[in-house]
Design a protein around this nucleic acid. Structure first.
Length: 202
DNA sequence: CCCGTGATTTAT
DNA sequence: TAAATCACGGGG
C-alpha cells in the first residue's frame, strides 16, 4: 500500500481570510484526524458552507451573540468550532478571519480516503463508503470528532488538522454554489448561495 | 413524511 | 425555573 504523500499543514494565513474565500479554498483539501492510538482517518473536503457572523440570520453569532457554545467562533482563524445538536449530533466548523470576527465555514461532506475500516466501525449504520462522510454530523461521527475537539487550533493540534493539497481554490467551474441546508428560519439569508460543493462529475 | 434526543438558549 | 429550539440523520 502506498503511504499518502506528505502535504503541508494549513497555517494561520490559510485560514485568516474572508469566510466565503475560506469555504471555497477548503474544497479539495484533506482533513486529517489522528486518533489517540495513532490511527489516521482522512478525507477530501467536498462540501462546505459559510456563516457570516452578526449580519447572518443563519449564524450562531447572529446579532453579535456571544455565548458559551459559540465562543470558538470569536477566536482566531484556524480554530475549530464543534457543537452538539439534536441531542445526538456533532458538527464541525473552521473559524475564519481574525479574533473578534465571529465567522466560520461548516464542513458538510468529505470523500473518505484513509482509515475506511475504522470509519465503518464508527458509522455502523452506513452501508457504503460514500455514506461515511456525506453530511456534517456523519463526517464527525466517521472521524470521531466531538466536543472535546472544540476550540482546537488546527495549525498546531496533533489530533486534527488540514493538509493543503492545492495552493489555490478550485476553478469556479468546479464549484457549485447554492443555498445552505437546514436554515429555513433565516429569512432573507435562506437563499444566499453560501453552500459550496465540488461539482459532481457528470 | 416523522421522530429521536438532550444540550443550549431564551423567555418568564 | 420552564419552554422552545435545533447549521441532523435514519427509517417508512
Amino acid at each position: 500500500m502506498n503511504t499518502p504523500r506528505n502535504f503541508p499543514r494549513a497555517d494561520r494565513a490559510f485560514f485568516r481570510r474572508d469566510t466565503v474565500a475560506l469555504a471555497r479554498l477548503l474544497l479539495g483539501q484533506r482533513l486529517v484526524r489522528q486518533l489517540p492510538d495513532g490511527t489516521r482517518l482522512a478525507g477530501i473536503i467536498s462540501e462546505t458552507e459559510a456563516y457570516l457572523g452578526p449580519e447572518d440570520k443563519a449564524a450562531h453569532t447572529f446579532g453579535g451573540r456571544h455565548t458559551p457554545r459559540n465562543h470558538a467562533m470569536w477566536l482566531d482563524a484556524g480554530t475549530t468550532y464543534v457543537y452538539f445538536t439534536y441531542g445526538m449530533h456533532h458538527c464541525m466548523n473552521v473559524v475564519a478571519e481574525r479574533e473578534g470576527i465571529p465567522q466560520a465555514a461548516l464542513l458538510r461532506a468529505l470523500v473518505p480516503t484513509e482509515g475506511l475500516g475504522t470509519m465503518q466501525l464508527l458509522r455502523p449504520k452506513a452501508r457504503r463508503p460514500e455514506d461515511y462522510c456525506s453530511g456534517p454530523a456523519k463526517l464527525c461521527q466517521a472521524l470521531a470528532i466531538d466536543r472535546t475537539l472544540n476550540e482546537s487550533d488546527l495549525t498546531t493540534s496533533s489530533d486534527l488538522w488540514i493538509e493543503v493539497l492545492r495552493d489555490h481554490p478550485l476553478p469556479d467551474h468546479q464549484i457549485l454554489a447554492g443555498p445552505r441546508v437546514g436554515i429555513g428560519y433565516a429569512e432573507e439569508w435562506v437563499d444566499r448561495p453560501l453552500r459550496f460543493r465540488i461539482t459532481p462529475d457528470a
